[in-house]
Simulated scan of single mutants.
Amino acid sequence: MYRTGAAARLAGLPVETLRVWERRYSLSDAQRSERGQRLYSAEQVARLGLLKQLVDQGHSIGVLASLSREQLQSMLGLNLPAQASAAAPVRVLLVSNMLARRLAAMGRDAAGLDVRGHCTSLDRLDELPTDADADVLVVEMSELDDSVLPLVAEARQRAGAAATVVLYRFCPSATIRALRAQGCLVARVPADLSELSLLCRSALTGQRLPLAEAEPAITPRRFDEDALVTLTAASDRLSCECPRHLSDLLMMIGSFERYSVQCASRNPEDADLHALLARASGQARVILEDAMERLAIAEGLPLPGRLS
Rank of each mutant, 00 (worst) to 15 (best):
V15D: 06
V286I: 13
Y168L: 05
D109A: 11
E43S: 08
S74Q: 15
C171Y: 01
V139K: 06
D123W: 13
L288T: 03
T175W: 04
L78E: 01
R9S: 13
P190N: 05
G160M: 03
G305Y: 09
E293G: 04
L231W: 03
D248S: 12
Q207W: 01
R47W: 02
R222E: 11
M1S: 11
P89M: 10
V63F: 04
L149T: 07
L72S: 01
A155I: 04
A227I: 06
T232W: 06
R169P: 03
V261F: 06
Q157H: 14
S281T: 10
Q157N: 11
E289R: 07
L196W: 00
L288N: 06
L167F: 02
S33F: 12
A162D: 06
Q37A: 14
E269G: 11
P268Y: 06
I287P: 02
V286G: 02
S85T: 15
S85F: 10
A159T: 04
S28P: 05
C119S: 05
E70R: 15
V63I: 13
P89S: 10
V152T: 05
S68R: 10
R124Q: 09
D272R: 13
L125E: 00
S281K: 03
R201Y: 04
L179G: 01
Q83T: 15
P89C: 09
M251Q: 12
S281P: 03
D226C: 10
A65R: 06
A42I: 08
S265Q: 11
S33H: 10
E34F: 11
R169F: 04
R266E: 14
I253N: 08
E195L: 09
P14F: 07
A298Q: 14
Q31M: 13
D224S: 08
A264D: 14
L122R: 13
L103V: 10
